[in-house]
Design a protein around this nucleic acid. Sequence first.
DNA 1: TATATTTACTTGATTTTTGCAAGTATTATT
DNA 2: AATAATACTTGCAAAAATCAAGTAAATATA
Lengths: 150, 150
Amino acid sequence: MRNSFQTITRSFGLLNKTCCSVEGIDVSAVQSHILYEIEANDNPSMQQVADLLGIDITTFSRQIQTLVKMELVEKIPSKEDKRASNLALTETGKKVARGIDKQVNAFLTDIFSQMTDFERETTQRAVKLIADAMTKSLLCCGTNKDNSSC
Amino acid sequence: MRNSFQTITRSFGLLNKTCCSVEGIDVSAVQSHILYEIEANDNPSMQQVADLLGIDITTFSRQIQTLVKMELVEKIPSKEDKRASNLALTETGKKVARGIDKQVNAFLTDIFSQMTDFERETTQRAVKLIADAMTKSLLCCGTNKDNSSC
DNA sequence: TATATTTACTTGATTTTTGCAAGTATTATT
DNA sequence: AATAATACTTGCAAAAATCAAGTAAATATA
């Protein structure tokens, strides 16, 4: 099993490395992940995204600084908590995120086009199942210090 | 679909970050991947592993140097090509690789234990199917310069 | 056969990224 | 009111990545 996961992760990682250029705007793989998570979550705080990606908050802070300079991300001071900032994509940021999404999806479509209809359907269901199981597991094991969510 | 893949890759990535310590020997996530690929492939050359992982050869060269210093990896001069080296794990290297493997597998077992027998079986088949499709696709798209294998 | 080109690395120098320590401001706890 | 915890930011040092250049061997070309 690990073998297959390693392959999938490696392939997806390589994909993310090569899918980082949209209309002349280049972002690193890490930055692409950050854009993705900001879009996927709803105006998340810095800490939230950093935890999600397993990036140290100091590194993350600086990554956000460069993304702000690139005008892809905006930092909005939180109203509830004056220490915190909420993150949002700028219009350009959204364009880049969408562009990356397009490329990644093209690859995934290609992958699944190799399969029969039946295979495709069961496989896609399986992938969702695993993703769910993994988020559940990660909440309770290893990566989080307090097992608050268990 | 991308969403699920992103989750899986992220989870597996986090896992690889936390599963890097075996009996007092610490390796980075990248180094763990290198050990894995050396073991999975049969005495691969440096170039092979670097390409596989999408790491620049100069960075890779230095990573191998530190792994050799740590006595986890051996460089064996190739007999067919005097420019090239083949990589192999030392006994300690094998021990570390096996230790990491154990931890990763424990996590995967945990994931699949959440499922019914039927789900588990179809899901595992699906994962293999995707891994195969991805290796095929990567050979022909994007990441390799010459499409020699198409 | 000689010569040019390519391949498989290595090394030096520079830049980028990362991570720890420490600090600030704010919020939560006691 | 005092203490602790949280959400960051900045300085500094180490690790990692990248570019340019170089070596030695293999391959292609003339």
